[in-house]
Nucleic acid binder design. Sequence first.
DNA 1: CTGAAAGCGCTTACAG
DNA 2: CTGAAAGCGCTTACAG
Lengths: 353, 353
Amino acid sequence: MGKKEKQLVGVKEIARRAGVSIATVDRVLHNRSGVSERTKTKIQAIIKDLNYQPNLLARRLASGKTLNLVTLIPEVSEETDYWSVPLEGVLQAEKEIQPYNVKITKLFYDMNNRESFVNQTQIILNDKVDGVLLAPAFIDEAIEFTDICQERKIPFVFINSDIPNQKSLCYFGPNLYHSGYSVAHLVNYLIEKDDKVLLVNISKDIGADHHILRKEEGFKAYLKDHDIKEPIQLSITETDYPSVQKSMSSAFKKHPDIKLVFVTNSRVSKVAKYLASIGREDIILIGYDFLSENIKYLENRTIDFLICEKPQEQAYRGVRALYQKLVFEVDIESEYFMPIDIITKENCQFYKN
Amino acid sequence: MGKKEKQLVGVKEIARRAGVSIATVDRVLHNRSGVSERTKTKIQAIIKDLNYQPNLLARRLASGKTLNLVTLIPEVSEETDYWSVPLEGVLQAEKEIQPYNVKITKLFYDMNNRESFVNQTQIILNDKVDGVLLAPAFIDEAIEFTDICQERKIPFVFINSDIPNQKSLCYFGPNLYHSGYSVAHLVNYLIEKDDKVLLVNISKDIGADHHILRKEEGFKAYLKDHDIKEPIQLSITETDYPSVQKSMSSAFKKHPDIKLVFVTNSRVSKVAKYLASIGREDIILIGYDFLSENIKYLENRTIDFLICEKPQEQAYRGVRALYQKLVFEVDIESEYFMPIDIITKENCQFYKN
DNA sequence: CTGAAAGCGCTTACAG
DNA sequence: CTGAAAGCGCTTACAG
C-alpha cells in the first residue's frame, strides 16, 4: 500500500480558512444548532468550495456509535423452508458490514399467525432502532407498523412483496405480474397450439395470496395477448401431500392429455412427487424457487424449469440499502425488481439465490 | 444509533494484561520482528484468549495508507462493446470501496494487439501495486506477467476466462463447457427430433478462441449424451456484416430447413440482422450476451434466447475479492463460476448484467 | 528487544 | 454562539 498523500481537505483546513474551531465546523457539517447564521454561511461556502468529503472511517470511529438494524421476516416452517434463503442474505450482509459497527437484530413471525407479527413489531417499536427490513405478509398490520416508523423517521425496506405508496426506502422483490407473463412466454416455446396446460395454485388462502394472484394474472394476460387458449385451472387449498395428490389425480382423470403443468409457487415439488408417482415425468412441469426439495426433482427431470427471483439477494440488498442510507446518506432507488431467472437441470449448479 | 458499549478488548487491554506496551502488542499482531519469543507467546495467548478482533476502521485510519488496485481489461472496440460492461462492474466496486481509501487504476489493452497487453503489464510492474484484476486474453503473456506478480506476492484475479494452475486469488467467470451444455439442454426442449440445428462460430481466429471452442464442445457433448444428431456447423472468420451475410446465405441455400441457429458468442446480432433481412424470424435464434445490439433483436423476437454470464458482476466481484483479501485478510474461494442466465423478450427488462 | 508519544480525521462533552 | 481538550483504537517513527 502506498502512503497516503496528505489529505488536502479536512475539518482542520476548513476551520483554518473560516477562522473558527473545528467544533464549529462540525456543527455546521451536521446541521446542529448553535452557530450564527453568518459563520454558518461562511463555513458552508468553504465546504462547497473545497468539495469536502468527510472521512467516514474517522467519523464512525470517533462517534463510537452502533447502528441498530432489525429484520422481520417469516420463520422457517414445516410447510416450506423458503425463508431460510432470505435469512442467508441477511447474514451475508451482516458479515460484510459487521466491521463498521452495525448490529442486526433478526426477528421472525409465524406466517399463519397475524398476532405473532404484531407482537414482533411491538418489540421493535419498544427498542432503539435505526432501520427496519420487513417482509410484509400481513398488509394492514404492516401498514400500521410502518406508519409509525415513518413518524419516527425510521427508514424501512420491504422485501418479497411490496406495499405501494407506503413510503418505504425501497422495495426489493419480484415483479409478480411480469413473472407470470414471462413464464407464459416460455410456455409458448414448449407446447404446440392446442396442447392442454394446467395451472395449479396451492395455498391455504389463495384469495389472499397476493403472490399467486398476480402471477396468475400475468400468465393469463400473456396467453390472451398471444391468442393462446386458456389454461385448465386447479386450486388446492390444503398444502399437505395427500391433498395435492387427490386434487391432481382427479384433474388428470378429467384431462389425461395435459402436456404442461405450471405451479404458481414453491409447492411445485408436491406436484412433482405426484407426477413421478404416476410415471408421468414426460409432462413438462414448471414451478417456483430454488429450494432443495425442488432441485431434487429438477435434477431427475420431473421438474423442467424453476423460476426464481433471488430471495437471498433481496434480503442482502435490503440490509445494504439501509446501511448505505444511514451511514453514507446515499439516495436509494425506491423500487428494485429482481431478475426473473430460469433454471434448468443443466444451469442449476451455478445458480446463486 | 446507540452508544457503543465500551469495547471490551483492544490493544490497550491486551497490553495491560501482558504487562507490555501497545507498540509491542502491535508488533505481535502484525508478525513483525523484534519481539522476544517469550513475550510473543504470552501476547499471542492473550489475543487468543480474549478472542481479539481488531477494529478495522481504526487500523485503516491510523495507517494512513491507500490501497492501489489495478484492472487490466480489453478496451471497448468497434467490433463489440462487450467490455464496457465489466468496466461498469469495476466502477461500481470502486464507488463502494472508495470511502475506505482504495484507489483503482483502470488500464486497457487492444484485444487484437498482443503488444498492447504487454505494454500495459509493464506499466503495472513499474508501479507500486497491491492487487491486480486481469482479463487474460493472451495466455502466454498473461502467464509471464502473473508469474512476476506471484514472485512479488501481489494477488491477482482473473475474470472472463481462466488460466488454471496459475495460482490466481480467484477466477470469476463462466464455466464455458457447461454453458454450451446448458444451451443444448434448452435446445432439446425447442426442437423436434431430426430438426436441423445450425451452430455458428464467428471469430477472427476461431482456433485460438478458447470461449468458442469450449462452448461448442459442451454443446456437442450434450447432443451426443442424449442421442441427438449433430448440428450443421458454420465458421465465419470475418466479423463484418457482409461476411456474415454471405456465409449465412450459402448455409441456408444448402439447408433451407434449418429450425434453430445457435451462435456461440455475442456476434449473434449479425446473424439476427441476416435472418430479419430474409424474413425468417420464425427460426429460433440463440446467442450470447446482454448487449444493446442483441437486446434490440430480442425485443423484436428475431433472437429468442440470450445466454449471459453477468460480465459486470464478474468484474465487480473480482475487485471486491482483492479488497477483501488485502484489507480483511479474508480467504477467497479460488473459483467462482457465474450463473448461466437465460434471457428472453419477457424477462430481459429485469436482467442485471 | 521495548516503550512513550504523536497522530490518523473526526466527535463529544464541557466550559465559557 | 464558540473553542480547547480528550478520545475513538489503532499505527508509526523515534529513542533507548
